[in-house]
Lab assay of single mutants.
Amino acid sequence: VKVFRALYTFEPRTPDELYFEEGDIIYITDMSDTNWWKGTSKGRTGLIPSNYVAEQ
């Protein structure tokens, strides 16, 4: 598990995607895809765009 911080707010387009706000901490559990990672924030899990976060 790696810890990342959201650089921007992300509004999901599908139920599989995770909503998060700029500054949120996201725990990444799967980075197997280059563009979409699986992450958890505020008790919810979903896909996030990798270019919206920076490693802490």
Rank of each mutant, 00 (worst) to 15 (best):
A54V: 15
N51T: 12
E17F: 12
L47I: 09
S41F: 12
L47K: 10
W37T: 00
Y27V: 10
V53D: 02
S41W: 05
E17W: 07
R44F: 08
D33H: 08
F4W: 09
E55Y: 10
T14G: 13
E11I: 15
E22L: 10
E21N: 08
G46S: 00
S32P: 07
L47Y: 12
E11V: 15
A54G: 08
T34E: 15
G39R: 01
L47W: 14
I26W: 01
I26C: 02
S32Y: 08
N35V: 13
D33S: 08
F20Q: 00
A54Y: 12
E55T: 08
Y52G: 07
V1S: 13
L47V: 07
E22H: 07
P12V: 04
K38M: 15
G43A: 04
F4H: 06
V3C: 15
N51H: 14
G39K: 01
K38N: 07
R5W: 10
V3Y: 10
K2T: 09
S50M: 07
G39V: 02
E11A: 11
Y8S: 09
L18N: 00
L47R: 09
K2M: 11
F4S: 03
N35K: 14
G43V: 02
V3T: 11
V53G: 02
I28L: 04
D16V: 08
K42P: 01
L18Y: 01
D16H: 12
F20D: 00
G46P: 00
E17D: 09
F10L: 05
W36C: 07
T29S: 11
I48M: 03
M31F: 08
P49G: 03
S32H: 09
T14N: 14
I48T: 02
Q56H: 14
E21A: 08
G43Q: 05
L47S: 05
G23C: 06
V53S: 00
N51Y: 10
D33N: 11
W37D: 00
Y27N: 05
P12K: 03
W37Y: 13
F4P: 02
E22A: 15
Y19F: 13
V1T: 12
R13G: 10
E22R: 13
T40Y: 15
R44Y: 06
K42V: 03
W36Q: 03
V3P: 08
M31L: 06
Y52A: 15
K42D: 09
E17S: 05
A6H: 01
D33Q: 08
G46K: 01
I28G: 00
V3F: 10
K42N: 14
E17V: 04
K38E: 08
N51P: 05
F4A: 07
L47N: 07
A54T: 15
K2R: 15
I26H: 00
Y52F: 12
F20S: 00
I48E: 01
T29H: 14
P49E: 03
I25M: 09
T9F: 05
G39N: 01
T34W: 08
L18I: 07
V1R: 12
L47G: 02
Y19E: 09
